[in-house]
């Protein structure tokens, strides 16, 4: 078997556009997931039992089912339920964001829970009202502590985003598969796709460890 990577050059433009689409999906899902995840984490630490159970059920459901199933469900079933036309792009973004929100909320919740009781004692000893305590003492520390976890969520999401190719979104994975079918050279093209994913994913993973080391030093005073 002979390997020939030279033809890849011809397809570099298509691959590039595929990568941009992937990054677009991930970017949107990360931002929307952050907002949604924060709201969910408030729900999961709420004293209101109804809010607590609803948000807990939601999070457990999205963590406990395959992303591919969620994606298909939202792509094929949700428009039928709502009786509206949704572009494939919109469905895919919604699916990824709903999933990313569930994962993100867990990171926030863990960070909130990791704050020592002594920080609360210090606030009481200084006579800080609850609102001031939450906004100026607890939240900033929770966010700082959540950062490494949030970044690794981004890495996972980046990899899981390849699933959108299954519903026909022209992301990097989809484009790669198409070219592979057209030119009948799956080894070269799929290897190239894997390497492109890795070139983005690896620096992200490294960044996570770096940030983790630095932040922990600050936060664990």
């Amino acid at each position: 078997m002979e390997l020939d990577f030279s033809f890849l050059l011809e397809y570099s433009g298509v691959l590039w556009r595929g990568l941009l689409t992937t990054l677009q999906f991930v970017g949107l899902a990360v931002v929307l997931g952050l907002i949604w995840g924060f709201i969910l984490s408030m729900g999961r630490t709420s004293k209101n039992l109804f809010i607590y159970w609803i948000s807990t059920l939601y999070v457990e459901f999205f963590r406990g089912t395959p992303v591919l199933v969620q994606l298909f469900w939202i792509f094929f079933c949700l428009p039928l339920f709502l009786g509206v036309d949704m572009s494939g792009f919109t469905s895919a973004v919604i699916a990824l964001s709903l999933y990313s929100g569930a994962i993100t909320s867990e990171s926030f919740r863990a960070a909130l829970k990791s704050i020592e009781a002594s920080q609360f004692d210090a606030c009481t000893a200084l006579g800080l009202p609850n609102g001031v305590r939450t906004i100026f003492v607890i939240l900033p520390q929770a966010v700082l502590r959540a950062v490494p976890n949030l970044l690794s969520n981004v890495v996972s999401l980046f990899k899981e985003s390849a699933l959108v190719s299954a519903v026909g979104m022209a992301d990097l994975m989809y484009v790669g598969q198409n070219i592979a079918n057209n030119v009948a050279r799956p080894i070269e093209i799929l290897s190239a796709v894997a390497i492109i994913y890795f070139c983005i994913g690896f620096p992200l993973t490294r960044a996570v460890s770096m940030v983790e080391g630095r932040l922990l030093k600050v936060v664990k005073a």
């Binding site: 920080q119 210090a122 800080l128 001031v132 003492v137 936060v219 664990k220 005073a221």
Partner: peptide, 19 residues
């Protein structure tokens, strides 16, 4: 039990200013 995300000045001034 200092507030790790605030500077020394920030630690000292938080309660007087905010409450």
């Amino acid at each position: 039990t200092l507030f790790p995300h605030l500077s020394v000045l920030g630690n000292l001034c938080l309660a007087p200013v905010r409450s």
